[in-house]
Design a protein around this nucleic acid. Sequence first.
DNA 1: CATGAATGAGCCTTCATTCAT
DNA 2: TATGAATGAAGGCTCATTCAT
Lengths: 239, 239, 239, 239
Amino acid sequence: MKCSLTQKQLEIHEREKRILAVSRPMLAEQGYHGLNMDRIAEKLQQSKGTIYNHFACKEEIIIALAIETMEKRIDLFQRAAMFRGNSRERFQAIGFAAELFVKLYPHHFGVEQIIRSASIWDKTSEKRRSVVKLCEHRCIGIVVGVVLDAISQGDLELPCGYKPEDLVFGVWAQTSGAYSIIATNDSLHELGISEPFSVVRQSVNRQLDGFGWKPLSKDLDLDAVIKRIEKEVFADECR
Amino acid sequence: MKCSLTQKQLEIHEREKRILAVSRPMLAEQGYHGLNMDRIAEKLQQSKGTIYNHFACKEEIIIALAIETMEKRIDLFQRAAMFRGNSRERFQAIGFAAELFVKLYPHHFGVEQIIRSASIWDKTSEKRRSVVKLCEHRCIGIVVGVVLDAISQGDLELPCGYKPEDLVFGVWAQTSGAYSIIATNDSLHELGISEPFSVVRQSVNRQLDGFGWKPLSKDLDLDAVIKRIEKEVFADECR
Amino acid sequence: MKCSLTQKQLEIHEREKRILAVSRPMLAEQGYHGLNMDRIAEKLQQSKGTIYNHFACKEEIIIALAIETMEKRIDLFQRAAMFRGNSRERFQAIGFAAELFVKLYPHHFGVEQIIRSASIWDKTSEKRRSVVKLCEHRCIGIVVGVVLDAISQGDLELPCGYKPEDLVFGVWAQTSGAYSIIATNDSLHELGISEPFSVVRQSVNRQLDGFGWKPLSKDLDLDAVIKRIEKEVFADECR
Amino acid sequence: MKCSLTQKQLEIHEREKRILAVSRPMLAEQGYHGLNMDRIAEKLQQSKGTIYNHFACKEEIIIALAIETMEKRIDLFQRAAMFRGNSRERFQAIGFAAELFVKLYPHHFGVEQIIRSASIWDKTSEKRRSVVKLCEHRCIGIVVGVVLDAISQGDLELPCGYKPEDLVFGVWAQTSGAYSIIATNDSLHELGISEPFSVVRQSVNRQLDGFGWKPLSKDLDLDAVIKRIEKEVFADECR
DNA sequence: CATGAATGAGCCTTCATTCAT
DNA sequence: TATGAATGAAGGCTCATTCAT
């Protein structure tokens, strides 16, 4: 009996996954009102009613997509944080993970963007919203953890009144801002920026240098580190 | 007779301004869908037809909003770029202008975000689109100009293969990313970031330090510079 | 289970019929503009959405009306073509069917008129369009068939270079032209034409006489033939 | 004073002509709602208000177009009726005029079609409507006149109970029906009718033969007559 | 008389959501 | 639970007509 129930639950979970899978590109590519219950049903060869048995409203689907996104990134970040190296290199690994995330799952990133602007939150359950918050915390927590390590190991000394979260915020802002611009501005080249990803890496590193996080850029073979990260942490993804 | 004509034209221009003024918060707060011709008309106590006499479609309103926004920022940036001080201080002034812009006109900033993602561009005239692009160029051009000055004056030396636009891109990404997060994430405090604007200033400065832009932070009384900028450039806005 | 499915499908089909039934007089009496989704919904006491579940757009309704019309006429024509009599009498029967069609279903006839002029065809599917064309072919084909019989039986000899389709075209033009005038000109009486239908019959017959289609009018008891047609072919309709 | 008034009236008349001139193709090509007050004003480089000083509503324009049309045809018919020849040849001349009218002024013909179907008449003034009726009478009167001549000259003897107007009605129906089909059915060729105009001429003549209108087709060199009509009556139009 | 901005009813169409089967 | 037809509130846009200047 119990087994059959679990069986059923698995089926349900499986179906939810499929709903999200067809929804994601619709949302990412065509925005909030490109996500359309009729088309979801059509693509899944299912009825709309069934979808409503899984998600109470359109907005719940969107939030669920966001949660999937965040979990995906958390996974990458966690693996990056475990990279074997000094604190700066581990931070580097997380930066690499962030970049990898955007490149591997451009749809995921697009969804995150949409969630911020649209007025979705009123219509969704408190429960889902708290899951989102939790994910945010976890994600930042991982990065903050590396900063704390750096401090405890003497690699980094933050200015007075400056907290680890603050440093993370600065880097987070820069990377998310950059990826957002890259994704939505198709004339970056005309503006004179031809290799934005490489520029972001460079900028972030200079920022860390500015904070005196050792070893500084000049003492670090960035390319070699990246190669190691690729091989040791993200071999599957970078094949 | 001539006067009366100008009179009429003024009225028309006035009304366009009012249409945009009503539209802006709707778009900024509720996104592409929140902007709605019926509600614009209702708020203005005018008929929909009238609005369509000014703007051929909803999208044209949105673009017009974007152009207003960009012009507003260009104005602030231009004034900032003329601040009397060394290159690093002038860059600082532009950073201050960017911050000021977000704080003074949060809706303007919000609109800019939306424009990127929505599929607006197909329905608008090539002419408007080129105006937008021109604005972008001008805005970046101002900042790049200061970087070039810094280089020519020997305050800054960019790494090999790194262009002035690249440096600007990094800072642009960080500030716009940060302001976007601030605007859309109401639980930053819970994440441990209590004074995000101050953090951004700090981060950007560290980044510039990382590039070795002289005078470095430690040789600069940041607070004093900011006070001078407030007084000498943005006295009106910071009253 | 199967039965219940058919049940549902029947209902749907039933409703489509009702949508068309309500639409027809609107279109026939008030033209393209008179047909209006709001009013259809109102008359049916249904929501507009429901109607759109049956027809993708207004134009599809119009085409569907046209197809119904043509099928109705084809049915009458087919029955007429099977009238037992000589070729001239069978042609007469088709003429009678045409007249009957206009009188029994004036709205059907009205719809056909409208379809020609309005720019409907762009918005409809190629499939529907080809159905319409097929109907036209079938309808003309029936009449051409009788002409061919007449020729093969030696009742009719067409002038050199004159095809059966040409003869049919002449009669088609005259009848449809006449019915169109009758339907839209309410002062025929004032113009001195008091029994237009009878006049058309007469004119067509003279035309056939002019082509020498035997037996000529003078050798034919037209009234008797008509009575037979009424009784033997269209008993139901002429009750 | 009087002169200046007449001057003014001429100007007004002139402007009305121009309004109708730009309206006609709009109506003929794009139907009732292709005729658009804004576009008329735009094409004329005038204001909409001015147009409303000439025509009380859109429908009045349409009727005025119809009247222009009918007057144009009356002119052609009158000239044709004066052709020097026997009654049958004069009738032929009118038939030629009708064909000429369609070919020279396809837009005129198109307008006439539209007027029939749309519900225009409620919104127009009694005065205009009576003008239309008068035109119809005149037009038919011309043709009836030729038929009467034929009878009085012993060329034609109508069957008992059949009036001259009836004969005219039959021919009118056939020609207008044919031209309507030609104008709106772009696949006549596929239906096997490749030279519809020639077919109509032939059919009408057979019809007249059927009524015994002398000289019969076989005693008439149709082509020669047509050539004479072209040369003697419509030299200007057939250049 | 000319102008043309303002009007507002009206139209077609979309789509999230419900609910009877 | 699955289905999918029905719903109906919006939404974007058009256009004949009016009227103050």
